[in-house]
Computed example of a mutant assay.
Amino acid sequence: MNRAVEVRHHLVSRQTNGGRLALSLAGAALLLMVSMPWWADAGLTRSVVEFSCYLALAAMWNLLAGYAGMVSIGQQAFLGVAAYGLFALAGHFDVDPFLAAGLCLVVPVLLAVPTYLLLRRLEGPYFAIGTWVIAEVCRLVISNTEWLGSSSGMTLRAMQQYSLEQRQMGVVWMAAIMLLLTVGGSYWLLRSRFGLALTAMRDNAVSATSQGVDVERLRFLVFLAAAIGTGLVGAVYYLSALRLSPNAGFDPNWIAIAIFIVMVGGIGTLEGPLLGAVVYFTADRLFSDYGVTYMIALGLLTLVVALYARGGLWSITGGRLGWHWFPTRWWLRSGR
């Protein structure tokens, strides 16, 4: 008697149907964003740029804390110094503002290297407090530097050479590039050979070291990348705002926003910051007029999520349903 033998092949793949759909939607969103100067008004363009800055800032903090295990509460230092680098290049050296937005990223690099060398032996809360001290030192130094406008700040007068339409076009295109480098760069990094090393380092640095991961080098590179990405957020945001002061550029609210977005959305995931950014941006638009009550509500929401859903909203929505918008692991699939 002949037996029918069913041969089942197993396929190893990193991409999923949900991932393909998410990438298609992300690409369409970027194309729509790039085309905004031809159909969107100034208010909508400003809102999209602001949302992009929040998302990029959260993505960088998530990479730093959620994967490299370095909890920083002083990332506003890199945001502020990059913004001041932009204003100084454009205001004092007559560099085109859009070109200066790229060149000013040298400044957070110059700050990040000695900062890491100074704080690299610190762990946990000591490292976090150290980063906050660095940010405060930067704020105080710039507040007392007359060349940078002291405490009154600076105005980006060089943008007057462009019309309103040209400014909107340049800023929204810079924001699109920022998203590609920060959010897209995080996705690419976690899918590269460094992604597994980062995950292992986050879970247990000692164990990762025993498996051959150069934890010290990888932490430095992630710290440097997060500093550059955060600096790019500062450049794009204040390129649009046209006005900068020490209290604004080094405002602790920047890191509070990043922590809220990542904690509520889901730390250590690529989908979490996107979900958290939507929640924060929507709440900010609807309830910011309530002032202190609004901030208390955001704080309580963060506390509730930290206590009862440590994986963030993504863990109780897409994560629980097995959705993978931006998969980074390998998946074993059966086929014929």
Results as ranks from 00 to 15, higher is better:
M1S: 14
N2I: 13
H9L: 14
V12M: 12
T16A: 06
N17S: 15
R20Y: 03
A28Y: 00
L31I: 06
P37L: 07
W38E: 10
W38F: 14
V49M: 13
A56V: 07
M60W: 00
W61P: 04
W61N: 00
N62P: 08
G66A: 12
A68P: 09
G69W: 02
M70I: 00
V71D: 05
S72V: 06
Q76P: 03
A77Q: 04
A77V: 01
L79E: 09
G80S: 05
G85V: 06
L86S: 10
P97A: 10
A100E: 07
V107N: 05
V113T: 09
P114F: 06
L118Y: 06
R121Q: 01
E123C: 09
G124Q: 02
P125Q: 15
P125R: 12
A128Q: 09
A128V: 11
G130Q: 05
C138Y: 04
N144A: 13
G149A: 03
S150I: 00
S150K: 07
S150G: 11
L156D: 05
Q161V: 14
Y162E: 13
S163Y: 04
S163M: 05
A175D: 04
A175P: 13
A175Q: 12
L180G: 15
V183S: 02
G185A: 07
W188E: 00
L190S: 04
S192G: 08
F194P: 00
A197Y: 09
T199N: 12
A200I: 00
M201N: 01
R202Y: 08
N204P: 02
A205E: 15
S207V: 14
S210E: 06
R219Q: 07
F220D: 02
F223E: 04
A227N: 06
V233K: 10
A241Q: 13
S245L: 11
S245R: 13
A248S: 15
I255A: 08
M263R: 12
V264H: 01
V264Q: 04
G265I: 04
G265Q: 02
G266N: 11
P273G: 08
L274K: 03
D284P: 00
F287K: 02
S288R: 12
D289N: 09
Y290N: 04
T293F: 12
A297L: 12
T302N: 09
Y308S: 08
G311M: 07
G311S: 08
T317S: 15
G318C: 07
R320K: 14
G322M: 11
G322R: 11
P327V: 05
W331Q: 12
